[in-house]
Write a protein that binds this DNA or RNA. Structure first.
Lengths: 187, 187
DNA sequence: TGTACATCAGTGAACGCGCGTTCACTGATGTAC
DNA sequence: TGTACATCAGTGAACGCGCGTTCACTGATGTAC
C-alpha cells in the first residue's frame, strides 16, 4: 500500500543513520541490506524503494558519518584548546570502543581500497575535514593521518596492552605540549 | 594418492606466501580458499590437508607478511640514512600501488578489528616491528601510526590528487629534515 | 467537495550465486616386518 | 632386499548457508477531474 510521504522521508533518513552506524561498527561486507532494513523496522523487500543498490546506501552512510566529523572538527579546531580537547577525545579508549558513533575515517579507510565506487565521496568529505582543520594544510594532513593510523592500530591489536600504549604515545607526540612540539629530534 | 613429503612442504609454504599476498591485495573476505589453492596449482578440496580453517591460513599469512616488515625495518633503521630511505620508500606512490608486496599493517589493520582471532598474531608482530625501530619507543609508535594512517588514507581516496598530497605532506612531516624536526610549532 | 484512479512504499517468497566446509574415493609414498 | 599394507595429500561432487536482488502483489495516499 501507499504510505504518507513524510513518514517515508523519515524512514529514509533513519536508514541512512542506522547504516552509517552499522557500517562503522561492522564494515561494508558484514552489514547486510536485510539487517539495515530490520533496524529501521522494515522488511528487506522495501529496500529498493529507497536505494538503487547496497553501494548507494553505503555512499550515503559514509557521507553522513563524515559530515558529522566535519562539523565536530569545524567547531573544535576554532581554538587551540578546542583542538587539544578534540585530539585527546579522539585518542581515548572511549572512542576506541565506540566505533559506531566514532570517526568514519578510522573505521572505514582500511576497507575503502576495495570499494572504488565509494572513494569519491570519501575523498570529498576528507577534503572538507582537512579544510576545517585550518592552516597549515600540510600539518592538518599529517595530524589526520597520525590520528587515523593510531586508532586503526589500537583497534587492530585487540585487548593487548599495546593498544593503550599506542593511544598514549600518539597523544603525547601530536599535542602542542607533547615532546614533538618541545623540540625533540627524531632519531 | 600420497605425495612426497618434501613437495608437500613446499606447497604448504607456497600457500602461505600466496595467501599473504592475496590477503594484502584484496582483504580477508575477498580472498577465497579456492582461489588460494588455485594460485598454488591445487583444487580446493586439498585445503584442509594443510590448514584447519581459513582463519588459520590467514593467521599464517599475516605472520609471514609482517615478518617481512620486521626484517626490512631491522635492516633499515640501523642508520639514520637507512631510516630516511625506508620512510621515503614507504610513503611513495610505488608502495601505494604495490599492495600485495607492501606493508601488511597498512593493508590489513583496518580489517583486523573484525577478525578477533587474528589480533593476537598481529599484536605480537607489531610489537616486534616497533622494537626493531629502536628507541625512543614512543616515537617509534608515533612513526608507525603516522605512516600506516597516511598509506591507508592515500589508498582510500582512490586516484584523487589528495592521495599524492597526503604522502608528500607526511613525508615532509615525519622525516628528520621535515618541518616538524625543524621546529615548526603545531597551530 | 466528491469521486475515480494512478502511485508507490511496503510484504514475503523466490532466484542465483559464491562461499567455507565435508566427504568418499584414489593411489604413490613411506614404513614395518 | 622384498613385500604387504597403512598413510594421507590430492580430486571433485555435494551440502548448507547467507547474501543482494527481483518480483507479484497489497492497499492507503495523493491527484486529476
Amino acid at each position: 500500500m501507499r504510505y504518507p510521504a513524510e513518514e517515508t522521508a523519515k524512514r529514509h533518513e533513519l536508514l541512512v543513520k542506522k547504516a552509517s552506524e552499522m557500517v562503522r561498527e561492522r564494515g561494508f561486507e558484514q552489514v547486510s541490506v536485510a539487517e539495515v532494513m530490520q533496524a529501521a523496522g522494515l522488511t528487506h523487500g522495501a529496500f529498493y524503494s529507497h536505494f538503487g543498490s547496497k553501494t548507494e546506501l553505503m555512499g550515503a552512510a559514509i557521507e553522513r558519518a563524515m559530515e558529522g566529523s566535519r562539523e565536530g572538527v569545524a567547531k573544535s579546531f576554532a581554538t587551540a584548546e578546542g583542538r587539544t580537547r578534540y585530539i585527546e577525545n579522539y585518542l581515548s579508549e572511549a572512542h576506541r570502543e565506540r566505533v559506531a558513533e566514532g570517526c568514519a575515517m578510522a573505521a572505514l579507510s582500511g576497507e575503502l581500497r576495495h570499494e572504488p565506487e565509494l572513494q569519491a565521496v570519501f575523498a570529498r568529505k576528507l577534503e572538507e575535514i582537512v579544510a576545517a582543520m585550518g592552516e597549515p594544510r600540510a600539518e592538518a594532513i599529517v595530524t589526520v593521518a597520525t590520528m587515523v593510523g593510531a586508532m586503526s592500530l589500537a583497534r587492530a591489536v585487540g585487548e593487548s596492552a599495546l593498544s593503550a600504549e599506542i593511544l598514549e604515545a600518539v597523544k603525547e607526540g601530536v599535542l602542542p605540549d607533547g615532546p614533538a612540539a618541545r623540540g625533540a629530534v627524531p632519531s
